[in-house]
Design a protein around this nucleic acid. Sequence first.
DNA 1: CCTACCGATCGGTAGG
DNA 2: CCTACCGATCGGTAGG
Lengths: 228, 228
Amino acid sequence: MQAVSRLMTPVHAARRGRPPKTLSQRDEGNRRRDLIQRAARLFREKGYAATSTRDIAASVGMHSGSPFYHFESKQFLLFTVMCDGMNQAKAKQSEVLAKMRLARVSPEQLLYGLIRHHLEILLGADKDFIPVMLYEYRSLDAGQQQVLADMQHDYEADWLPVLKKLHAQKRLHTSVKWARLLIFGALNWTVQWHTMREGVSQAKQLDTLARAALDLFIHPASPEVAAS
Amino acid sequence: MQAVSRLMTPVHAARRGRPPKTLSQRDEGNRRRDLIQRAARLFREKGYAATSTRDIAASVGMHSGSPFYHFESKQFLLFTVMCDGMNQAKAKQSEVLAKMRLARVSPEQLLYGLIRHHLEILLGADKDFIPVMLYEYRSLDAGQQQVLADMQHDYEADWLPVLKKLHAQKRLHTSVKWARLLIFGALNWTVQWHTMREGVSQAKQLDTLARAALDLFIHPASPEVAAS
DNA sequence: CCTACCGATCGGTAGG
DNA sequence: CCTACCGATCGGTAGG
């Protein structure tokens, strides 16, 4: 996930003759990562337009002009947040799928796993990234939107075989095309209303929610249809 | 719906001694309505923070300071857009429900009607209002958010008896609490991806989408359970 | 509702 | 990465 984002980053370390600093304790990658992390949180909490580059600089202890040493523009920082988020989400989803396939679980369990993981991405510890992508899309330029659209397409592609199987089994009574859009909608919208309760483990709360979603979308197996 | 929004509007026609103008062809209400209409569209298209009051003024042919004659602040204009939208949506929904109740339709048909109407609100001719409310909520202050939360609660209250009935009939396999949140999510998210196709009537496209949503959420009636 | 304007803030840059 | 700064834009207001 780092690879892609670094590729897309115009590095300007060479610009405006600056001593290379030989990687002291605060090396460049860390500061850059800090900026991305804090920007993600601020963008999620206040929105992109309402967050100033000064807010971001202050939140990592920099002065107002310094973020522009790491990022050519505020928009590019937003784009980087989104790309990093997507790469991370896609990588984790692949892991989840690989594990389930080894365990030879049913299509229903596969869909549960995908839903559960997607909720983790939206509401879990790293929740600052994908929600920003979902809700600040229009702040990107056309080219950046295209890049992210392709990444989203890849991410959702993993869901299609599972949905197709469930549709073939008559456990999903909507075409795969509509089901995908509506299911992602229901999940993505949780960002708007879900808050973690105190005293219950986060994992359990996400389990419950994932189960509720699955039960809403997937019809019970009719007795004569065997699994897989 | 006008009533409430007018009530909440601090009228300052009396401020800064201005000749009352005796309602010429461009009377005050029309200009005010124009502002609300155009602001709603700009807020939806570009976002609240990214829309300047100058943009709004220009789009109705006013000069930059003039919107503040009608609205005490940009934020209050946003709030008015949302309130007008909610009042309109609630009123139309009540009509839809009243008609269906007269026709004594089934709970399934009731839910279809509610979904169909909600999609109309989100994607139909007046689509500039509720989407702004859904996506710019955080730009309001706490008091305004509370007012709108109450209105939304009223709006959604109409859905609960229908969902309860379907749950009792085992046609909805998720608790009413979760179902409401997830269903509204799936519908509200359509704003993000739905575009009208050319050559097909808008009504038909919304029918199709409403049907797809209903089929996703509601399980087929088991043979032994009679309607209602 | 227009004119003319203010103070604040913003993204971004030159130079070191 | 800091210092010092610029031009642009923004929400909002006084006065008519």
